[in-house]
Design a protein around this nucleic acid. Sequence first.
DNA 1: CCCTGATTCGC
DNA 2: GCGAATCAGG
Length: 200
Amino acid sequence: MAMEWTEETIARLRDLWQQGLSTAEIGRQLSVTKNAVVGKAHRLGLKPRPSPIRRAAKAASAPAATTAEAPAPTPAVENTPATPAAEAAAAPAVTPAAPQAPQKAPAKAQATPTPAPQPKPAAAAETAPAPRATRATKAALRPVSEPRRRSSQSCCWPLGDPGTPGFHFCGATPLPGKPYCAEHAQLAYVKLRDRRDNVA
DNA sequence: CCCTGATTCGC
DNA sequence: GCGAATCAGG
């Protein structure tokens, strides 16, 4: 079954994407593969993010070599070096915790009330053998400002198990620029390196 | 080898 | 429309 990209799901995708999380990261939190994330992101039209590669131009030689072609005099050589959310974005000081069972699970309790004040969240967080997320610890980005793209008019924090009849979204009024309400935003933006397969 | 995202193509 | 497979760069 193809992933059901609901408005809420898309809102989450957009939010996390905009936060600068990697596709794999978003995928984990959304319980999809990075491919799904990047694929959907493309179709959604978002995706102005730093690309590590530039994929060789396919040899699809235009059958009809229209003379009125090549309007681009090759201004910039390649990718834009000025990507604000590039490196820093690789590991936001706060990463949305996987919204597993906010009500059931007592959360991680590590939730920091203050969003991203510390440049070095790592160090002490190296207790448990993190399955992954190595580089994810280094950077500490800036507090994302400029809230644009209204998410939805309702908090899209998932409650219950996705796919089950009881599953629903919070529905409360979200914070400006966020897909979650104030309460769930606190749960969502937990410190770092937590979550993974907590969604189960 | 790990990571990253991009594109292609069968479904 | 979806996403695995594949590609490509760091």
